[in-house]
Design a binder for these strands. Structure first.
Lengths: 211, 211
DNA sequence: ACCTGAACACCGTTCAAGT
DNA sequence: ACCTGAACACCGTTCAAGT
C-alpha cells in the first residue's frame, strides 16, 4: 500500500569513502524501515547511520535534527494514506460504497502500518508542526475526504452540513477506531476489531444522512 | 476535575534522612505534576527524585521501572475520567442530555489534561498492558459509558445494537475528536474545536438512534 | 526494609578537523 | 560540499554498600 521503499541493504562501510548517493532519501527509507519493524521508540540516529554504513552524525547534513527526520517520515505516511483513500473512493465508483470503502481503507492503513501511523499523529510531530511539507501532505490527505463528502452532498445523498465540519467528524471516527484497535484496547484484537470497523462505517453513514 | 493532588513542595534533601512518608504516593503525584506541566517526554526519574529530595534510584523500591510508574499515573487518569463521565451523566438526569454531557465531559477531560490523557493512551502503556490496576481502571471508565448506553436502550430511546459494540463506537468518536483537537490538527484551536465537539455529540445521537 | 552513590550502557547533538 | 570522531550533557537501570 505504501509502495515499500527500495530495499537498500545495510552495507559495510568502506573506509575513506563517502555515501555519494541520495543520502537524504536513504535516511528516510531506513528510518521508516526501523519504525515499521521495531517501533518508533527504537529509532536512533546511531542505528540509522550504522545500517547505512555512515557516521551517526552524517544526517545533520540533510536534516536539522532527529525531529526533522521523523517529520519527513510522517510526510511520506500522509502521502501514502491519501493514495489509499482516493484509490478506495475511485475503485468503488464515488457512491455510498465508495465512502464506506474510504473509511475502511483509512482504518486498514492505520492497522497495517501501526508504527508509521503513530508517528504521523504522535507528539513527535506536534512540536515540529512548522514543517511545511508535513502540513501540506496531511492537508492533502484530509482534502481527499472533504472532496468525497462534498460530492455526496451535491448528489443529494447526505446532509448539507459544513463539509469541513462533516469531514472532521468522519475523520475523528475512523481515527478513533484506529487508535482503539491499535492501543489493544480491544481485547480480542481480531474479531471485535473487525466488527467495530463495519459498525463504524455503517453508523457514519447514518450520522451524515439522518436528521 | 481530576481532584488535583496535594501540593507537596519539592524539598531540600536533609542529609542522612530518609523520606519516610508515602513515597510511592509522592512519586505518582510528582510524576503527574511533571507530566501536566512539562509534558510526558520531560519526565525523568532523576527529575522526580530531585523534586522529592530523594535519590534517583529510590523509586525502584516502589516500582519495577519507569514504565510501571507511568502506568500508575495512567491508572489515576482513568479513575478521574470515570468520575468526570458519571458526574456528567448523573447531573443531567440520565437522558439524552446526559449522554451528550458525557461526550462533552470526555472531550473536555482530554483537552484539559492533554498530557495526562496522552499518557493514558500512548505507546508507553501498551507494552505494560499487563498492569492489572491500569486495566481495571480503564475498564471501569469504559463501563460507565456502556451502562449509560444500556439504560438508553432499555428506555427505548436508542437502537438495540450490541451495547459493547455501540459503546466502542461512541468511545471511538470522542476519542478521535479529542485526539484531533489535541494534535492541533485543527488550525484555529478554539472556534473549530468547539464546533466539532457540538457537532460530534449531536451526530453520535443520530448514529445510535436512526436506522 | 529502605535508601544511596558510583558505574554501565545507552542517547541526541556539537564542533574542530579531515578530504 | 560532505563526512568523521571525539567530546558533552543527558538518559534508565544495576548493584554493592550503607543505615
Amino acid at each position: 500500500m505504501a509502495g515499500s521503499p527500495p530495499l537498500r541493504r545495510p552495507r559495510k562501510k568502506r573506509v575513506g569513502q563517502y555515501h555519494h548517493g541520495d543520502l537524504r532519501r536513504a535516511l528516510i527509507d531506513q528510518a521508516l524501515r526501523t519504525i515499521e519493524q521495531e517501533g518508533a521508540e527504537a529509532l536512533t540516529l546511531r542505528g540509522v547511520g550504522e545500517a547505512l554504513g555512515v557516521s551517526r552524525t552524517a544526517l545533520y547534513r540533510h536534516f536539522s535534527n532527529k525531529q526533522a527526520l521523523v517529520a519527513a517520515v510522517a510526510g511520506e505516511g500522509f502521502r501514502a494514506l491519501r493514495l489509499a483513500l482516493t484509490d478506495a473512493w475511485d475503485r468503488q465508483g464515488h457512491g455510498r460504497a465508495g465512502l464506506e470503502a474510504m473509511g475502511l481503507a483509512y482504518i486498514r492503513f492505520a492497522v497495517d502500518h501501526s508504527s508509521h501511523y503513530r508517528v504521523m499523529f504522535g507528539r513527535f510531530v506536534e512540536s515540529c508542526a512548522r514543517d511545511q511539507d508535513l502540513i501540506e501532505a496531511a492537508k492533502a490527505a484530509f482534502q481527499a475526504l472533504v472532496d468525497a463528502l462534498i460530492e455526496r452532498q451535491q448528489d443529494g445523498q447526505t446532509r448539507r452540513d459544513d463539509p469541513l465540519l462533516q469531514a472532521r467528524f468522519v475523520w475523528s471516527v475512523v481515527h478513533g477506531v484506529a487508535m482503539l484497535v491499535l492501543d489493544g484496547q480491544l481485547r480480542d484484537h481480531d474479531a471485535s476489531g473487525e466488527a467495530l470497523r463495519q459498525y463504524a462505517v455503517e453508523r457514519i453513514q447514518a450520522a451524515i444522512t439522518s436528521d
